[in-house]
C-alpha cells in the first residue's frame, strides 16, 4: 500500500496532484520515467509520469488529468488513503546532455510531464526555452514551477484568455524561425499536439523528441500492449520509451490504438458516475 500524503486540485479540478509515499521508487526515479498504479483491488493498471521524486523523504509526485473511471476514482482519494499498488520507476529516463539551446513544449497536462525534463535540461547547463499552453487561462498548470527551470518561458491559450492567443506550435515555429541555435525540441502533450509539433519542426531539421502515452498493462515488456511504430519498426513504449524521435513516430497508428477501448471506457465511467452520484461517496 502506498499512502497519499498530499493532494492538490488544479485547473479547476480537472487535474489532480498527489504526493505518494513510495520510498523504493523515489530513490531510483530519473526525469522522464513513470510508474504504473492500481487504485484498488479491482482497479486497472494505469501509467502516470513521476513529476518529482524525493529520494530521502521517500515520496513521489504525480499529476493526473481526470479523463475516465480510474482517474476519477483516484481524484476522490484523500491524504491518508492508500493506493493499492505503485510500480516503478518504468521506462528509460529522458536522455539529458548539454546541447546548448533546447526548446521544451508542453500542452495541457503534458506540462506536468515536461516539468522534470525541463528541469533536468536546465540543470545540465542548457539554455532552456519553454512554451506551455492550455485551452484557457484557468486550465494552465505549473507556470511558476516551469518559470523557475527555464531561461525563457512563453505561455499560450487557445482562447487568448492569457499569454499568446493560439497554439504552442505557433510560438515554436516563430522561435525556430528567429533563432538558428535550437539543438533539440522536447514535446509533451496530447497526441494531436505532439503530432503537429513534429510537423512544425520537421522543415527546420531540428531533432524533436516526444513522450508517447499508449495503453499499457504491465509496463515491463511482458505484454506488448504498448507497441508503437517508430521508423517502421515496432517498439514497446514501456521499455524502449516513452521518449521517441517524433519525426519517426507513426502517430496515426498511436491514435487508433488509443481508441481501442473507448466503448468500454465510456461504459465504465458512466457506471461509476452513476454510482458516485447516487451513493454520494466512493
Amino acid at each position: 500500500m502506498f499512502e497519499i500524503v498530499e493532494k492538490k486540485q488544479l485547473a479547476q479540478g480537472t487535474i489532480c496532484m498527489f504526493k505518494v509515499m513510495a520510498p523504493r521508487i523515489a530513490r531510483k526515479t530519473k526525469p522522464g520515467q513513470f510508474v504504473i498504479l492500481r487504485a484498488n483491488e479491482k482497479g486497472e493498471r494505469i501509467p502516470l509520469t513521476v513529476a518529482e521524486a524525493h529520494p530521502t523523504e521517500g515520496w513521489i509526485r504525480i499529476y493526473f488529468q481526470v479523463v475516465g473511471k480510474t482517474t476519477a476514482m483516484l481524484s476522490l482519494m484523500e491524504p491518508g488513503d492508500a493506493i493499492k499498488d505503485v510500480i516503478g520507476p518504468l521506462g528509460l529516463p529522458t536522455h539529458v546532455e548539454k546541447w546548448g539551446t533546447v526548446l521544451c513544449v508542453g500542452g495541457g497536462l503534458g506540462v506536468a510531464v515536461l516539468y522534470p525534463v525541463a528541469r533536468a535540461f536546465f540543470e545540465a547547463g542548457n539554455y532552456v526555452i519553454a512554451i506551455i499552453g492550455a485551452r484557457t487561462k484557468d486550465l494552465l498548470i505549473l507556470e511558476d514551477e516551469m518559470r523557475a527551470v527555464c531561461n525563457e518561458l512563453y505561455v499560450t491559450t487557445d482562447d487568448g484568455s492569457y499569454g499568446h492567443h493560439g497554439f504552442v506550435t505557433d510560438v515554436a515555429r516563430k522561435i525556430l524561425q528567429e533563432r538558428k541555435d535550437v539543438k533539440m525540441v522536447m514535446g509533451i502533450g496530447p497526441v494531436p499536439m505532439m503530432r503537429f509539433l513534429c510537423k512544425t519542426t520537421e522543415p527546420f531539421g531540428v531533432k524533436t523528441m516526444v513522450s508517447l502515452n499508449p495503453i499499457m498493462v504491465d509496463g515491463t515488456g511482458m505484454c506488448g500492449a504498448c507497441r508503437v511504430r517508430v521508423g517502421g519498426e515496432t517498439k514497446f513504449c514501456c521499455v524502449h520509451g516513452p521518449d521517441f524521435d517524433g519525426h519517426q513516430v507513426d502517430f496515426d497508428e498511436l491514435t487508433k490504438r488509443l481508441a481501442m477501448y473507448v466503448p468500454q471506457e465510456r461504459m465504465a465511467y458512466d457506471k461509476f458516475k452513476a454510482e458516485v452520484g447516487a451513493g454520494g461517496g466512493r
Partner: peptide
Amino acid sequence: IYSANEYLTRSNLMKAYLFPEYDTP
C-alpha cells in the same frame, strides 16, 4: 491483435472477464 501474454494477463490477472465489475477492459 493481441499477444497471448496481453490477452491472458488482461483476462486472468486483471480479471477482465469480470468487466465492468473489474476495471480492466
